[in-house]
């Protein structure tokens, strides 16, 4: 599974990356959380409000920080 956190490096983006890492850890799945801070790349996902969460190249959340349990649910649905 491929998980990406999009954000130019504001505080919320860090919080989201932490939450995503925690969710992966709690689910004990084989997934890598990657942080993307390149603006052009972020835009290529069609995201205009950061931070955003991308699972398997699909944007699932943008513009807010979901809770760890919400992220877990999103991962299980993907």
């Amino acid at each position: 599974m491929d998980i990406k956190v999009l954000g130019p490096g504001c505080k919320k983006c860090g919080t989201l990356a932490e939450a995503a890492n925690k969710a992966v850890e709690e689910l004990a799945i084989d997934a890598k959380v990657e942080k993307i801070d390149d603006m052009v790349k972020i835009l290529s996902y069609g995201v205009m409000s950061t931070p955003a969460l991308v699972i398997n190249e699909k944007v699932v959340v943008s513009g807010k920080v979901p809770s760890v349990s919400e992220i877990k649910e999103l991962i299980q649905k993907a």
Partner: peptide, 17 residues
């Protein structure tokens, strides 16, 4: 519209595009 000044750049790019 929900807006955070840290998203000003992606928003600007998205609008112009």
């Amino acid at each position: 519209t929900p807006f955070c000044s840290c998203s000003a750049i992606p928003l600007f790019l998205g609008f112009v595009e």
